[in-house]
Design a protein around this nucleic acid. Structure first.
Lengths: 229, 229
DNA sequence: ACAAAAGTGTTGCTTTTACACCCATGG
DNA sequence: CCATGGGTGTAAAAGCAACACTTTTGT
């Protein structure tokens, strides 16, 4: 870091919009801040990027610290860099969204220093957020809306074995609209990327649905990287 | 900027992939560096973000310094933050692409301090680039490939008045494949977002083509923000 | 008159949409 | 036996893909 670079003091941070699907609801993980600025406000989980970690590594670490999970699907989607977005200085933040399967109980636990609380909150009940996190969240939602139409990201929100109805719920929640059941099933099954597990749902008090699994192998063969849900 | 933020020395920069369409070719603007590191290498135009400017402002400024143009269509698309991407320190760069109409002569002029030369180079002849600019450029191209299918960005590359053939050329160059003339025209005209100017091309030594203009008004009315070319 | 590009329709195929009832299961 | 969601087909409409020749203009 020689004399060409220096200019002024600045840092970068990562903010994550963690989406989780759970029993028919789409939620995001919010933390309640325990420090100034914005003490007691709800905010997206985030942190500063350390010296020796790349942006992706940083995002992975932050998510791990929050949830204890590794191998979660994450994707960077936008950098927010308004001059005054952080009251304490120049902080450019790079936003990631992550998609993960909530199995009922997977409540957030650790929670970093400056949070006193972390909660999964339905995307329809998101409160006012600290900093410019409202904007960050909205753009994240927009991104996955767009991406779910062309890439198989819905499966990241579901358990490994899922029913077609669950899959449809994910699409409906993300896209924010109802879909026709018959057409949806026809289309999904026609892609040939779902493996019928010859296995039924258990523990439901009605006719048990068939379980499916996303066939990644076939997907990559068939589509390379493109599809149109 | 109090005691909560400080961590280590870092800066952010902007790098731009400037796309230009000109006489049947899709080009990008590259500069030849005049300074270490990567002296004499070709690179994407870029610069450090100043203290009092947002990312968008910085991108706009950089583009202005290079081309003397304002009001150019630009869009941020990705932040690159590998630890070692810059040999002199921790530099996270935010990449933008810009689309602009080259009217034959609009050769780049000013060129910043650390460049000795700037040139429009056909996207098929892009040389090895400094830093991780190869990756940045490729991702930028990918982005516009995707975006041109859903948003009316092709018009940003064309003069205000253009022929259908020119429009088709833009699509073909960006997408990297030939399209059927009749189908293309049918589709475009059916959208109803092209205004027929009742005016013909001039100065060509063959049958003059009708000139059209993008009808932004109608576009926003009809599609809000979505379309499928 | 020729070279160069402009302009123009039809057909078959695929995809999308709209739509309603019976079935299996657990309580 | 009832409540709950599971599962299924068809027909009409729209959209997409393939395809070749005539027209206009300048030189």
């Amino acid at each position: 870091m020689k004399n060409t670079l220096p200019q002024f003091y600045s840092v970068f941070s990562i903010d994550c919009v963690l989406f989780g699907f759970d029993g028919g609801e789409l939620k995001i993980l919010l933390i309640e801040r325990n420090e100034e600025p914005f003490k007691d406000w709800w905010a997206l989980p985030g942190n500063l990027v350390a010296q020796d970690e790349s942006l992706d590594e940083s995002a992975t670490r932050i998510l791990y610290e929050l949830t204890g999970l590794k191998g979660v699907y994450m994707e960077q989607y936008y950098a927010f860099g308004d001059v005054d977005r952080h009251p304490q200085g120049r902080v450019v933040t790079v936003a990631y969204y992550a998609l993960l399967r909530l199995s009922g109980d997977k409540t957030p636990k650790p929670v970093s220093d400056f949070a006193k609380n972390a909660q999964w909150i339905n995307v329809n009940d998101v409160p006012k957020l600290a900093f410019d996190h409202q904007k960050i969240y909205e753009k994240g939602l927009e991104k996955i809306k767009r991406r779910i139409k062309h890439q198989p990201i819905a499966f990241e929100l579901l358990p490994e074995k899922f029913t077609l109805t669950q899959l449809q719920q994910v699409y409906e929640l993300v896209l924010g609209k109802k879909l026709d059941k018959r057409n949806f099933r026809k289309k999904m099954l026609n892609f040939g990327i779902l493996k019928d597990l010859d296995e039924k749902q258990k523990g439901v008090s009605f006719r048990a649905a068939t379980l499916y699994k996303f066939d990644k192998r076939k997907y990559t063969k068939l589509f390379g990287k493109e599809i149109s849900f």
